[in-house]
């Protein structure tokens, strides 16, 4: 009986303890959730303000107090941004950027997967040395080579060309590194069977390895696309004709021009226009994108 009593008391206290522990955890989670919401607000509000301003007519854009929902929303800013003749219009820049990004992605996937394949799957003399050479490339900040790249492209008359934007990014040590990881994880049996059947190495790469490494390829594709799209300094240096400039460079010129005439609406429309495509790509391929960074990744 006595034992029973003490047991009951113990049970009661432990129940109380768990209950208070549960309550404490609820409070903790609530606080955490509030913090999280604040963080999201911090990250989202500027974007929201960008979108709002882009729909606000330029003549009321300096309105006080600020209006989060424009009183008379307009698409005028977008038309102005796309068709402006002050510099090359945003339409042209978007086309340039798209062309460069798509070409870069295709070339990068091709070149890098071809390089990653022997590094993952073949034994040959100098393999280790070549691999280390690739790894060294991961640590070279491309920016330090821009002066000499500029002089080299100038010497061969390639300044102001799409090639000058596409080629230097295509041989990506990161891409080779990433794809090599994926290739190595693919079971060898399929490939060996094909080899016994007499398939050439090239066919094996394209018909067996690449389809199986799709997650790796798509991760690299998205990563390369965003990198190319947001590339700023190199196009700024190498593109001399407004009609060849990519989106970020044109945006830089827009700031100088439209901010002086206080057309913030037009500027924000241009900023939104420059952002839509990468955001769509990001939303569709969020998983692969996050994976590509999680695996390795390069960004300031």
């Amino acid at each position: 009986m006595k034992l029973n009593n003490s047991l009951r008391a113990e049970m009661a206290t432990s129940e109380r303890r768990t209950r208070s522990a549960i309550r404490w955890r609820h409070i903790q989670r609530l606080i955490l959730w509030l913090v999280l919401t604040l963080i999201s607000v911090f990250f989202l509000l500027p974007v929201l303000w960008m979108i709002t301003t882009s729909f606000t007519p330029n003549n009321v854009v300096l309105h006080y107090p600020p209006r989060w929902i424009p009183a008379s929303p307009t698409l005028q800013n977008y038309t102005e941004a796309i068709t402006t003749t002050r510099t090359a219009g945003l339409g042209r820049a978007l086309a340039n950027s798209t062309l460069v990004a798509v070409a870069t992605v295709i070339l990068t996937l091709l070149v890098d997967s071809m390089a990653a394949y022997p590094l993952a799957r073949m034994n040959f003399k100098g393999k280790k040395g070549i691999f280390i050479l690739v790894l060294v490339g991961l640590m070279v900040p491309a920016e330090v080579t821009f002066v000499s790249l500029f002089l080299m492209f100038n010497a061969v008359g390639w300044l102001n060309s799409y090639e000058s934007l596409i080629l230097p990014v295509a041989a990506s040590p990161f891409g080779v590194f990433l794809l090599r990881q994926f290739f190595m994880a693919i079971p060898r049996d399929l490939e060996d069977a094909a080899r016994i059947d007499g398939c050439s190495r090239m066919r094996i790469l394209f018909t067996i390895i690449l389809p199986l490494a799709k997650p790796g390829l798509s991760a690299l594709a998205i990563f390369t696309f965003l990198l190319s799209w947001n590339n700023f300094l190199w196009p700024l240096i190498v593109m001399t004709d407004p009609n060849m400039m990519t989106v970020p460079v044109i945006l830089a010129y827009y700031v100088a021009s439209f901010a002086q005439s206080l057309d913030w609406g037009t500027l924000m429309a241009a900023a939104v226009g420059a952002t839509i495509l990468p955001v769509i790509v990001f939303l569709i391929f969020q998983k692969q994108f996050v994976r590509s960074i999680a695996t390795t990744g390069l960004k300031g």
Binding site: T87, T240, S257
Partner: peptide
């Protein structure tokens, strides 16, 4: 075809680059 390359100090550099590039 008039184009504005308004951008503070960057303007003269851009013109010089375009002269170098052979398409000023």
């Amino acid at each position: 075809k008039l184009q504005f390359l308004t951008w503070g100090g960057a303007y003269y550099g851009k013109v010089r680059s375009s002269i170098l590039a052979g398409n000023p």
